[in-house]
């Protein structure tokens, strides 16, 4: 197999890697906010349960969660296994990343001094207005570096989808490496991941700069 064919095959896989990446972000970023709000709920039961769920999602390997989401229903209830593996893969990734994002959001929200809430109340803002117009814009600025960290990790974590035989870039890389007894596909895949992350880094840097409007 020539280097070109190899690269083309891997690039096909890169499309599926991108699908996991963007769909995961699409679902996990908002879901993380919901989880963060539940986690900070004044109701002890709600915050306790959320805390427990987060601890499981952060305390067990993502690979295990992938297997559980994909094959768990079959072993537990005799249900079918999804033909399109993108669905269980994105579900597992989105849930897992939402747990991490939730904790980042919580850290950001709790870093805002209480005085701002009091001031907003004096000025006649409702609770929702205070959160959306005053707290959230500051939170977003503060947590962006941490979010970038997670997003960069996500790019690399997509390779774990090989455990459920989803044909993303790493899975294909493994298959080529195996049939050609060669390490080259892994090097090519490594370059692809690195470039992908370079783009992510650049984009996040731009967003950070744009939000830095007080300086």
């Amino acid at each position: 197999m020539t280097l070109l064919t190899m690269t083309v095959k891997l690039a096909e896989g890169l499309g599926k890697t991108c699908a996991i990446f963007f769909l995961t972000l699409l679902f996990s970023l908002p879901l993380g906010m919901v989880v963060a709000l539940l986690r900070m709920s004044k109701n002890r039961l709600i915050s306790g349960v959320t805390r427990f769920v987060i601890s499981i999602l952060r305390g067990t390997p993502l690979m295990l969660q992938l297997l559980a989401v994909t094959y768990g229903p079959y072993y537990l209830f005799g249900a079918g296994v999804a033909r399109n593996k993108l669905i269980p893969v994105v579900v597992a990734f989105a849930i897992n990343y939402a747990a991490y994002f939730a904790e980042i959001y919580r850290g950001g929200i709790e870093s805002i001094p209480v005085g701002q809430y009091e001031a907003a109340e004096v000025l006649g803002y409702t609770k929702l207005q205070t959160f959306v117009r005053i707290i959230l814009p500051q939170v977003v600025k503060r947590i962006l570096p941490s979010i970038t960290n997670e997003v960069v990790t996500l790019v690399k974590d997509t390779s774990m989808a090989f455990t459920v035989s989803y044909q993303e870039m790493f899975t294909i890389g493994k298959q080529i490496a195996n049939s050609q007894t060669s390490f080259t596909p892994f090097l090519v895949a490594g370059v692809f991941y690195y470039v992908f992350n370079g783009v992510v880094d650049f984009a996040m840097g731009r967003i950070e700069k744009r939000l830095n409007y007080y300086q």
């Binding site: 094959y71 079959y74 079918g80 296994v81 033909r83 459920v164 035989s165 044909q167 298959q175």
Partner: peptide, 18 residues
């Protein structure tokens, strides 16, 4: 043609009808 990671995952895919 699905290239699986282990025999068990092949058989699980079969059992699950995928």
């Amino acid at each position: 043609l699905m290239i699986c990671n282990s025999f068990l995952s092949c058989f699980t895919e079969l059992g699950g009808g995928s």
